[in-house]
Design a protein around this nucleic acid. Structure first.
Lengths: 347, 347
DNA sequence: TATTAGCACTCAACTAAAATGAGTGCTAAC
DNA sequence: GTTAGCACTCATTTTAGTTGAGTGCTAATA
């Protein structure tokens, strides 16, 4: 199972070549383009060995070799060269990412976007989730005679319009009670019981129709239950269409369909590289999703502080430019960490 | 230029057929499938006439006919039969659309989604824009020792995280002044001068570092300037891949690229059916965007009240099922109108 | 013993020619 | 005015043949 130096060099040459061309690599090409000082015949013998060992595959008798999943895995773990991003690329990226960093969702989205531009693959990015989403403030603001805006501030802001008739004063009073009861509570602490006790408190102190209270509280509860929902953004899905492995429209469509379903994405994002520090990859069959069996998914965690964590991932063909993707994800995740660091408590 | 009854029937039959098959329609097929009681030879003569009049095109000498842009236009204006959506479809749709109607953006997004499910084409939907976005409330909420959430409530809610050190009390005071100065102002009324006068007011009344004030106000101004930005959502873009006219991956990619750029979409949405009541279509060459020259765009306006208005559009191949698309857009736009009606003032 | 030149063999991909058939336009008869 | 009949057109499909990249094996070489 252990490869000698020459086999490693040859395997590396073949995979590098295949990543670039998407065509089976022949012995002659290896012996010519890569200066190993070996004839094609020798390479041929070594390739036969590498195939036997499971690192290469021959699509048909008279074709060159392509890497197997195991081949890619070995390449990622031990063979690939470090990719160095250009200084100006890095600076441009830092600059663009730092813009309007206050709009968290947008920053996260842009991180995905920039990754997709940098790598030219599809990216998936999940907004940070806290273990405990603590309510900082609740507010009710009348918008028209018939509508009141409910606003719940946590680390982010949720809002929804409620169709109800409450005056400015009534809103303030109800909001006061809501704040007294819910501030500093986390979403999972708030149950139907909590809501009922608030209902009692309001009807005691504020002279408004019980029906209106129930209506408002219904929405409060609904909004609170949604606090922990993660947003997930997919970007540059169209890039899939440029790779020869997806020239078949139906294959492409299957992937698009997969990527359109947030449920799939949540599973995907959840089940990848959780315990790992830094960038990690799932290659081909290592993916759980059937449809990604001939794709690779490379992910990295970023964090907002110790607790809140999100993920950034790249989806592409198995023969993706791993070196570049690894370098890009590494850079961007660190960039996010340091950018968002300024909002942390300094305990 | 005026068509007799028989020519109309034949043209209608041909377009209906072509919409279904995407294959040039021959005279024999028309005389067989559609019970006109005419032989293929007769149909052939009529088809030759229709071609001369500009309603049909013959891709090559020995092929059937396909509709020209003018043909589709005539079809949409005078020929197509009314499409009736099933009662259960309508009810299901009403039900799904009504869910969580308080989250405006989500409702709009879902309207687009449901349209895309109903029609199986790509949809574009713009969130409603008011002529004047009036500020209802501004708030500052401390999130951590180092971060304050700025919240601006209009008909919707904008928020952003500011990296600054302000205590709860300081936030309240600053927010009080912001509200006093900005409440009931619209975005275009707020200039740099307004901001400077607020700066003066704060430094007079609240004992905090001027640097912090400037920092916060900078973000306030930025957020206010963004108030009138419209969100635009594209959904079910992948549906493009299922139509034979887009089996060519490169064509598909061009459209995806087009749809990914919000600027394009804004122009698209802005320049379509503005003055029209009800559903309107842009067929092929009628579209401004070069890339949509062999697509059709069908749009409808929906309104939140007299002023705030958004658009819902369907993009598909020229041979789209216009009847169904018209019926769907009509239904959904009315549904939105009545759903969002409950938030209106009842002046 | 490791490497390489040489050669027969394989097989996908390309090419050219031939067959097919859907559809037309025209003419003459009804 | 309508239609049957027929010659003609031309994209598409089918077929057979050619090409060429690449392999595996063998025997010669360092």
């Amino acid at each position: 199972m252990d490869l000698n130096e020459r086999k490693k060099l040859i395997l590396q040459a073949i995979i590098d070549e295949y990543i670039g061309s998407a065509e089976p690599v022949g012995s002659r090409a290896v012996s010519k383009k890569h200066e190993l000082g070996l004839s094609s015949a020798t390479i041929r013998n070594e390739m036969a060995d590498l195939e036997e060992m499971g690192y290469l595959i021959q699509p048909h008798a008279s074709a060159g070799r392509i890497p197997s999943d195991a081949g890619y895995r070995f390449y990622v773990n031990s063979l690939m060269k470090r990719y160095k991003l250009g200084l100006e690329t890095i600076e441009k990226l830092q600059h663009e990412l730092a813009e309007r960093v206050g709009m968290l969702d947008r920053t996260i989205k842009r991180a995905g976007f920039l990754t997709s531009v940098l790598t030219d693959y599809t990216t998936v990015v999940s907004a940070p989730v806290s273990e405990r989403t603590e309510i900082k403030k609740i507010d009710l603001v009348p918008i028209s005679d018939n509508a009141v805006m409910l606003i719940i501030v946590t680390r982010t802001v949720k809002n929804r319009l409620i169709s109800t008739r409450l005056s400015f004063d009534e809103c303030q009073k109800v909001a006061g009670i809501l704040n007294a009861c819910l501030r500093e509570k986390s979403a999972d602490e708030i149950t139907m019981d909590t809501i009922h006790s608030i209902e009692a408190a309001i009807s005691e102190k504020v002279p408004i129709e019980p029906k209106l209270i129930i209506n408002v509280l219904h929405y409060v509860y609904e909004a609170v239950s949604e606090l922990d929902d993660t947003e997930i953004y997919v970007q540059n899905a169209k890039s899939i269409l440029q790779y020869p492995e997806y020239q078949d429209v139906n294959k492409a469509r299957d992937i698009f369909t997969f990527l359109e379903d947030k449920q799939n994405l949540k599973k995907l994002i959840a089940g990848s590289g959780d315990d790992t520090e830094g960038v990690s990859a799932k290659i081909g069959d290592e993916n759980d999703a059937e449809i990604l069996k001939d794709c690779s998914l490379v992910t990295v965690n970023y964090s907002l502080d110790g607790k809140a964590v999100g993920k950034l991932g790249v989806i592409g063909p198995k023969r993706m430019n791993y070196a570049k993707v690894f370098a890009s994800l590494d850079l961007i995740s660190h960039e996010i960490d340091s950018l968002l660091g300024c909002f942390d408590d300094d305990r």
